[in-house]
């Protein structure tokens, strides 16, 4: 157990920047978990007298146009960020991985399924997400679903090409000829070997989900405005950019830092990947 953990942490020793990314992510998780203890303010409490304050000792990051404490809202916003990220990654994995693996195991149906996945990839991500939101309606769950479908396709594609290679590899061939059952091949040979490439993929999808959700919030098509999310904070403070530029600085910086950290962590994890899957990752996600 400890050894596995150590082997995952090893690439971080060589990449100092990625270690920084890991720390930022841990910090975001901690602030989501202990949000009420980190601030004495209520993220929703308005205080019209103290509106648009610049950063002070009481209001570290200032206050917004309703006088709400920006720092508090950012701390609570990390909950939303984690929820969206986990939701999108979870949805993409729970749907994309079975589609990819089953398509490899049952090639006849599989070819058709992968065609359908390719077809969905013909729609630029944001356009597809917006189309889905029109159909599903607005809200946090639907934003997660909309972004989830976008990354379902990428995850299914990656799973498919990695599984295809694994299936072709000799040890699996051997298993097949010994009369191994399909589900046995899947559970013993394919799925365990998918863990590493998918973990890397997951960290990139998590990062994309942050940016995607922030865009939806910003357009007013994501989380309802009363929910303190970083994207919503940017959308609401937008018109105060000249009067109170710091209002947009902190939530924006949080989005950037989170996405940046996830990319760094993904990069470090990719270093420990088998080079064969590294190419796969590159060609299927377009992420160098």
């Amino acid at each position: 157990m400890m050894e596995t953990l150590a082997s995952w942490l090893e690439p971080f020793q060589k990449r100092r920047l990625s270690l920084f990314g890991l720390c930022v992510l841990i910090l975001v998780i901690l602030s989501a978990a202990f949000a009420p203890f980190l601030s004495s303010f209520d993220p929703l409490a308005m205080d019209p007298i103290n509106r648009l304050l610049s950063p002070t000792a009481t209001h570290w990051f200032g206050t917004d146009h309703f006088g709400r404490d920006t720092f508090t809202r950012i701390v609570y916003g990390s909950r939303m960020a984690l929820l969206i990220g986990t939701g999108v990654v979870g949805f993409a994995l729970l749907t994309g991985v079975p589609i990819g693996v089953l398509s490899v195991l049952f090639p006849r149906v599989g070819n058709l399924m992968m065609r359908a996945v390719d077809l969905l990839m013909a729609f630029p991500a944001m356009l597809m997400a917006l189309g889905l939101i029109v159909i599903l309606g607005q809200g946090v769950t639907n934003a997660i679903l909309a972004l989830g479908v976008v990354y379902l396709t990428r995850t299914a594609r990656l799973t498919y090409s990695v599984s295809l290679r694994l299936k072709a590899e000799t040890f699996v061939e051997a298993g097949r000829s010994m009369g191994a059952r399909t589900w046995w091949i899947a559970s013993r040979h394919i799925v365990p070997n998918l863990v590493s490439p998918l973990l890397v993929q997951a960290s990139f999808v998590f990062a994309f989900a942050q940016l995607g959700a922030a865009s939806l919030d910003f357009l007013g098509l994501g989380a309802p405005p009363d929910i303190p999310s970083w994207g919503n904070m940017l959308a609401e403070s937008r018109i105060y950019i000249t009067r109170a530029p710091w209002l947009l600085f902190f939530p924006g910086m949080m989005i950037v830092l989170t996405a940046f950290s996830l990319n760094l962590v993904g990069d470090a994890l990719r270093d420990r990947l088998d080079p064969r899957y590294r190419d796969e990752q590159l060609s299927k996600t377009g992420k160098p």
Partner: peptide, 25 residues
């Protein structure tokens, strides 16, 4: 490489808002 990684993680609208602030406002 570091800057590239950073900018790949930046929401375009956020960059846009600050560009407006600096160069327009």
């Amino acid at each position: 490489s570091g800057l590239a990684m950073f900018f790949a993680s930046v929401p375009t609208f956020w960059v846009g808002l600050y560009l407006i602030l600096f160069f327009a406002a």
